[in-house]
Design a protein around this nucleic acid. Structure first.
Lengths: 369, 369
DNA sequence: TCGTTTTACTTAATCGTTTCAGTCATAGTA
DNA sequence: TACTATGACTGAAACGATTAAGTAAAACGA
């Protein structure tokens, strides 16, 4: 008797135990056949593999193996928002590209974990993710998800936003947002701009965008956003522009359409700004789109500077002056730091990647009114 | 006594059992607290959650839960090549966007499984993927990975390429590649083109690209490639162009640089083709790049038609005439089919999504020599 | 008051592997 | 020959949960 495939019996998926029974050895031996072939005589190994093929056994079940071994061979990438947004954001895609490169080289698959499901920030996905470690990307420093990540007590690398109350020794990868932003602002003041407006990301949870006063600006819990605003402030300040006079328009989402909305508002102010600093290329593209719709020319009527230097920035019309950061390198670095920890190495020191301004065709000296 | 945290004892991650011990109930009750709260008195549930927090218990371990339940809450997306390539391919990214949308709505995370690790097509990643089902994307119909997928006996949806020897009832999502390709070819012949060349994907494993003769063309095991070539052939044939006279250049990778290489070759033939049909927008972009380098104007000196209609096609210079397919919709559909099966519904019939030609600025009547 | 539900838990089996510590021949050494 | 290695496998205890079936007490109805 046994678990042979009598006809009529519903055939469940074969297990390692079935293969063992078929060959007449212990399960341990079959396990060894897969995991430490050197422990078996060659002949037996062949016999086992044949039996496995015959029974349609696809190898040790990943879940069971994961449970027993304590690792599942996957690293989780946690994205602040819905995954579908991540794929629509070129910067995120480049970052994923970097992470995936080191993950697959080290034999890990990539589990994309949505930070937000149908609008709610629900840590359920984090708690339920079968992974060996996390790369936390683009997550507000006080997000509940971060708490969930830390509760999991898995190795984690934080990108861009260090978690609040971080004990200092966490692996963090970030870029010099402030320096880049300052360079962008100084580029504009250097060209002679003094009436500059800023278009930025969501500062605090809120349904809609609009001008953000100083108080609201102070509320951001996104570190890059804060750093970029700080950089703009310093850069403009160096040329004597008072930050209180700089209109800062807040966009609830990082998509071109929001940038366009911001631009429509800012460009209809009187007097009109001669330049716009956008906190991302996505927003900058929207700004330029709106300009086109309003019959304004860039950089003839006003200048635009982006942030991120996604590939599209070099192909837009006009080509976008923007702050470059190497998203792929950021992903590679984050991936490497996590993989290193998973392989038992000591946590690395936080890393800061450089940024620099790339001058293209969307900026020029202001034309006197 | 028990597993309390005496100081000095290394504190392992708390388990459900620890929480149970702490509260003085059975593990089953703690499990219920998480999974069927209505089975408990409210007071006890609160006590359990408090104890969990106190012990730093992050909720049931996903792997153990997965083993016991038989599902892990993740769907695997299998990509033919290295993951990092996938992220570099706008069409793949759009497809992922679609899949991820339905996945996250249904409460699944997305496990990206590389089809190729450091150059080798190794089914190990497939065998080791802790998932409930697969979406198989862009995989040659005779790839070993497909065998591995089928051995896993998990629900799977195949996209674009039906597996060889498929029993007919497999869930498959594809697009009307042939119709689209024919429309592209007919568009060119309609404009008066007769000397047309084709730039296509890899037809058979081979280190380098080059002209592919009829025999080699017959070898493709990528279904979309074959269908597109068939479509071109029919479209051109309708205008009396003999397929044997059409140079077909094979590119080993779907990247602009390869398209450029193909174009450099084809455009230095004598007589020069007046139009190029590219099997993807990525290749078409490369073709246009090469044209620019060679001082040729598109569509002045020759026309180009792409395939895929990725967003960049509308932004290139000149804007690319191409065959539209809805990649996001394809992802949504594939995702929905898989989720439906995972939720116990009957396998759906294979679906074929439409394609259509989008005329932009990269095509024009040939200029008489 | 007694039998029946209902509520609130508990018991124990199970999911499919891995791995440590044996066991038992056979080969090697002195 | 007696003793230790080596090689080739086995036994059984985890890994951390879920869940069907069971139990004891409390609530209910007549």
């Amino acid at each position: 008797m046994g678990v042979n495939d009598e006809k009529g019996k519903i055939r469940r998926r074969a297990t390692l135990k079935d293969v063992a029974a078929e060959v007449g050895v212990s399960p341990a031996t079959v396990s060894n056949a897969y995991n430490r072939p050197e422990q078996l005589s060659g002949a037996l190994r062949v016999k086992i593999m044949e039996a496995a093929r015959r029974l349609g056994y696809a190898g040790p079940d990943p879940t069971a193996r994961g449970l027993r071994r304590g690792r599942v061979g996957a690293i989780g990438v946690l994205y602040a928002d819905r995954l579908s947004y991540a794929f629509a954001d070129p910067a995120a895609v480049l970052f994923f590209e970097g992470v995936s490169r080191v993950a697959e080289e080290a034999g890990f698959a990539l589990l994309l974990v949505p930070g937000s499901i149908s609008g709610r920030h629900d840590p359920k996905a984090v708690r339920g993710a079968a992974v060996d470690g996390f790369v936390v990307y683009c997550m507000a420093e006080d997000d509940r998800m971060i708490g969930a990540v830390r509760e999991r007590r898995l190795p984690a690398v934080f990108v861009d936003d260090p978690p609040k109350a971080s004990s200092g020794d966490l692996p963090i990868v970030r870029v010099d947002d402030e320096g880049g932003a300052r360079a962008a602002a100084e580029h504009l003041t250097g060209l002679g701009h003094r009436r500059v407006a800023v278009v930025t990301f969501e500062l605090a949870p809120s349904p809609e965008g609009g001008l953000a006063d100083l108080e609201r600006q102070a509320q951001t819990s996104f570190r890059p956003t804060r750093s970029r605003l700080d950089g703009y402030k310093k850069g403009l300040g160096n040329a004597g522009v008072r930050w209180e006079d700089v209109p800062v328009y807040e966009c609830p989402e990082n998509v071109p359409a929001e940038g366009a909305r911001a631009a429509r508002f800012l460009l209809s102010m009187d007097p009109r700004p001669t330049a716009i600093l956008a906190a991302s290329d996505q927003l900058a593209f929207g700004v330029m789109e709106a300009a086109k719709d309003m019959g304004l020319s860039v950089p003839g009527d006003f200048s635009v500077v982006g942030f991120d230097d996604v590939p599209e920035a070099a192909r837009s019309d006009p080509q976008l002056t923007t702050v470059h950061q190497d998203h792929v390198a950021k992903g590679l670095l984050a991936g490497r730091m996590l993989v290193a920890r998973l392989e038992g190495e000591e946590p690395e020191a936080p890393a800061v990647l450089p940024t620099h301004l790339v001058q293209r065709a969307s900026t020029a000296p202001p034309t006197p009114l």
